[in-house]
């Protein structure tokens, strides 16, 4: 009984923490961007403007739940729920601290790759169902983008798997007790980081929404809570990729003095801020440039990484 209760606490704890964090990211991102862009950002509502999150949420909840008459209604409604579902599901396998994980799967990494691929459907279907030319172009770009990074995203993680000898994330974290995998697997880390940026379609890989070209692209027609789901989905996606990077390459919860959970959180926040910094700094490539970059440079590098890692591991054994 107590084990079940403990499990329920973990599930809801992570869910609650995650949603709070995603909402807080709205404020963090706006303040950080403002800091880097010589502006103030939201600083009026509450201490340091942090209640802007509440104000935004109230606004978004009370907006009219509008479905354009020309849209494909069922798909239009389903699309934003997919992204929420998939990113939350993927979070289930991330170990936050020793034993604190929703789903301790043996095939954790495979589960993550599979579920996050389904997330693409959200964008593509939204672009299709909106029945708007800009949205369609956005959806189309997303599917092209997916072709370019899905392949090397999975491959970039195989080096870690080879070294840890397991697909289970808790095992991988434990295997890093003495050395973070970022050192032997630096190439894998870089490739996964780039793929992760593309996965969460944030600048510089925000071609599907590209506000200066496609005016929000796949979610042009969305408003109110449906738009909110894309929005929160994107932020949870950012936390997910950051959490995965920490888990796979930066020793997860391991760290001196502070409790494991705090270490995990700090490391994750570091990468989230890095995501935001990249957004502030980089322009956006064209999507065919991303495609050729992915296939011609990153894919061979990822394969090379596996080859070398495998050879070295075999030689040592």
């Amino acid at each position: 009984m107590s084990e079940t209760l403990q499990h329920i606490v973990i599930v809801f704890g992570i869910l609650f923490g995650l949603l709070t964090l995603a909402a807080g990211l709205i404020w963090i991102e706006r303040r950080l961007l403002a800091l880097w862009q010589n502006r103030y950002g939201p600083n009026r509502v509450g201490p340091f403007g942090i209640f802007i999150v509440l104000a935004d949420m109230i606004k978004i909840f009370f907006k009219e739940d509008w479905i354009p008459p020309f849209a494909d209604k069922k798909v239009f409604v389903i699309a934003p729920t997919i992204i929420m579902l998939t990113v939350l599901l993927s979070w289930a396998i991330v170990p936050v601290a020793p034993g604190v994980v929703v789903l301790d799967l043996h095939i954790g990494i495979l589960f993550f790759l599979a579920i996050s691929s389904i997330g693409i459907y959200s964008t593509v279907l939204a672009g299709w169902a909106s029945n708007n030319k800009y949205s369609l172009l956005g959806g189309m770009r997303m599917s092209a983008q997916m072709f370019s990074y899905e392949v090397f995203m999975g491959l970039s993680l195989m080096g870690v798997v080879i070294m840890a000898g397991s697909f289970n994330l808790s095992d991988i974290v434990n295997a890093q007790e003495n050395m973070w995998f970022v050192l032997p697997q630096f190439l894998g880390f870089v490739i996964f980081f780039i793929a992760g940026l593309a996965e969460s379609h944030r600048l510089p890989f925000d071609m599907p929404e590209a506000e200066s070209e496609l005016i929000a692209g796949f979610h042009s027609e969305y408003s109110g809570m449906k738009f909110g789901m894309f929005f929160v989905g994107e932020y949870v996606g950012v936390t997910l990729i950051s959490a995965m990077i920490v888990t796979l390459f930066f020793g997860g919860w391991h760290g001196p003095v502070l409790p494991p959970f705090v270490w995990f959180f700090l490391k994750m926040m570091f990468f989230i801020c890095l995501f935001i910094l990249l957004r502030a700094a980089l322009p956006r490539p064209r999507y065919d440039q991303l495609l050729s970059y992915g296939w011609k440079i990153l894919l061979p590098l990822a394969l090379l990484n596996i080859l070398v890692t495998g050879a070295i591991v075999l030689a040592i054994e």
Partner: peptide
């Protein structure tokens, strides 16, 4: 810079 997707320069 904004047109090619770079967010910050326009503020500077």
């Amino acid at each position: 810079a904004q047109d090619v997707g770079q967010m910050s320069p326009v503020f500077y």
